[in-house]
């Protein structure tokens, strides 16, 4: 998705704050952040890590230099396979004007050699926040891969899909606080933008504040 088209759609949908979480890379965050700034949309750097267990784990960063350090380590932890561009498309890194500044050759679709526990440690060591992605999905979710969430307290929050029926789903995961569920669109195409969203009542659009909504601190609110 081109950053300008994406932000235009975000603006049309009256969404105030987005994160992009490409598969195993944050290389495109700088360009999208610049364009988001032009549109007055708050932007958070994120990445969807595919762990050795093929769990999709979301990591978000307020500190961009830490994010870049993390991104380098994540990159070197990816299995060294070439991207098959005919099958998966080219993996491009762009600038804010949509110029291609790099063609990524390593397959980002693949897994990291980090297991989920190791990945969480790496995120924490870089002041990042982490949540397992789309836990109600039947593939690549922590529950599909591991059967159940081994220790929920190791995560900051839990991602759910756009179509998740929270009332019904809560029966399956009674041990998770409703406040810790964050719904997002997981949009891969413009048409999917805004299909899932979460409302946050916070002082400013940073991940640290989202964590305060999860714990309901000082009047912060979250609703899905």
């Amino acid at each position: 998705m081109s950053p300008v088209a994406l932000m235009q759609r975000v603006q049309d949908l009256k969404i105030d704050w987005i994160a992009i979480t490409d598969h195993n890379s944050m290389a495109n965050c700088p360009a999208y952040e610049k364009v988001a700034g032009d549109f007055g949309i708050a932007f958070t750097w994120g990445v969807e890590i595919q762990t050795a267990e093929e769990i999709h784990l979301l990591a978000y960063f307020d500190d961009h230099s830490q994010a870049q350090e993390f991104d380098k380590l994540l990159y070197s932890s990816l299995l060294p396979l070439q991207n098959d561009a005919d099958f998966f498309g080219d993996q491009v890194v762009i600038d804010e004007n949509e110029n291609i500044i790099k063609l990524e050759e390593r397959a980002l679709i693949n897994s990291s050699i980090w297991g989920v526990d190791e990945a969480v440690d790496m995120i924490r060591n870089h002041d990042g926040y982490c949540m397992p992605a789309h836990i109600d999905a039947t593939a690549n979710s922590i529950i599909s891969q591991l059967g159940f969430i081994p220790n929920p307290e190791m995560f900051d929050a839990f991602g759910i899909t756009a179509k998740c029926n929270v009332e019904a789903y809560k029966q399956q995961v009674p041990y998770l606080e409703t406040n810790s569920l964050i719904r997002s669109s997981d949009a891969h195409y413009l048409a999917d933008m805004g299909s899932g969203w979460t409302k946050f009542y916070v002082e400013k659009p940073v991940m640290e504040e989202i964590m305060l909504t999860v714990s309901g601190t000082n009047g912060r609110l979250i609703s899905i």
Binding site: E53, G115, V116, D117, I143, S144, Q145, L146, G147, F148, P150
Partner: peptide, 22 residues
């Protein structure tokens, strides 16, 4: 593991590459 939980039975050898504590 979500599949194994629902379908594997006692007396079976479980063959896998998954090595998480779960």
């Amino acid at each position: 593991l979500s599949d194994v939980m629902g379908s594997a039975k006692s007396g079976q050898a479980w063959i896998t590459i998954m090595k998480h504590l779960n």
